[in-house]
Amino acid sequence: MIINNLKLIREKKKISQSELAALLEVSRQTINGIEKNKYNPSLQLALKIAYYLNTPLEDIFQ
């Protein structure tokens, strides 16, 4: 099972779900679904998340 630290990292960087969704060009519901482990992001989306949060991919999804 993948450990998902997206919410923790996003909140630590003081970025809202809506702000991150806008940067990634996805819906806020997509971010919410990823954070609640209801949706697994594509590799492309996971890499974009890591880029915009300036955090290694391995720290977000373990």
Rank of each mutant, 00 (worst) to 15 (best):
K36L: 13
S42F: 04
I31V: 11
D59R: 08
I34P: 01
L8R: 14
Q62N: 11
L24A: 10
I2W: 10
A50T: 03
S18N: 11
E19H: 13
F61I: 04
Q44P: 09
T30L: 15
L23M: 15
K48R: 10
E19R: 14
I3Q: 11
L57Y: 10
Q44D: 14
Y39W: 12
P56D: 08
S18E: 14
Y39H: 10
K12L: 14
I31Q: 00
M1Q: 13
N40F: 15
L57T: 04
K7S: 08
K12W: 08
I15S: 01
I3H: 13
I60L: 10
Y51H: 11
S16W: 05
N40T: 15
E25S: 12
I15A: 03
E58M: 09
K13I: 07
M1T: 13
Q29W: 09
Q17D: 03
T30H: 10
R10D: 05
L43N: 06
S16G: 07
L6H: 02
I49R: 00
S18C: 10
E11K: 11
T30N: 03
L6R: 01
E58N: 10
P56E: 07
Q62C: 11
I49G: 00
G33M: 15
T55A: 08
S16C: 04
V26I: 11
F61C: 04
R28F: 11
N37L: 08
N37W: 08
L24H: 00
A46D: 00
A21G: 05
N4L: 05
Q17S: 05
Q44I: 12
I49N: 00
N40Q: 15
I60K: 00
L24N: 00
A22R: 14
I31P: 00
Q17H: 03
K38M: 14
N4I: 09
E19Q: 14
Q29T: 11
N5T: 04
E35Y: 02
N40D: 08
L24E: 00
P41T: 05
L23I: 12
K7E: 10
A21R: 02
K14T: 05
N37H: 13
R28I: 15
E25F: 07
L24W: 00
K13Q: 13
L24T: 12
L57G: 02
L57F: 11
R10L: 07
K48S: 05
A21K: 01
R10W: 07
L6T: 03
N32I: 15
T30A: 07
N32V: 15
V26A: 03
S18Y: 10
E58L: 11
I15M: 14
Q29R: 13
K14M: 10
I34R: 01
I31D: 00
L43S: 06
A22T: 15
N32L: 09
Y39A: 06
L47D: 05
S16A: 06
L6S: 01
L6A: 02
T55D: 02
F61P: 02
S16E: 05
L20Y: 02
S42Y: 04
S27P: 13
L53S: 00
K14S: 11
N5L: 07
T30G: 01
I3P: 09
N37G: 15
N32C: 07
I31K: 00
K38L: 15
N40R: 15
E58P: 08
A22I: 10
N54A: 11
M1L: 14
L43M: 11
I60D: 00
Y51F: 12
N5R: 10
M1I: 15
I34A: 01
Q17F: 03
L6C: 06
I15E: 01
I49V: 04
D59V: 11
A46C: 13
K14V: 04
Q44M: 09
Q29K: 13
F61W: 09
Q17L: 10
N37D: 05
Q17M: 10
S42T: 13
I49K: 00
E35H: 02
K36T: 15
I34E: 01
I2Q: 09
M1D: 09
L47N: 08
L57H: 05
N32F: 05
I15G: 01
E35W: 00
P41I: 11
S16Q: 05
S42G: 11
A21L: 02
V26Q: 02
I3V: 12
L47Q: 11
L43G: 07
N5Y: 07
S27E: 06
M1V: 13
I60V: 06
I9M: 07
R10N: 01
Q29M: 09
E11L: 12
S16T: 13
A21V: 03
N54C: 10
I49E: 00
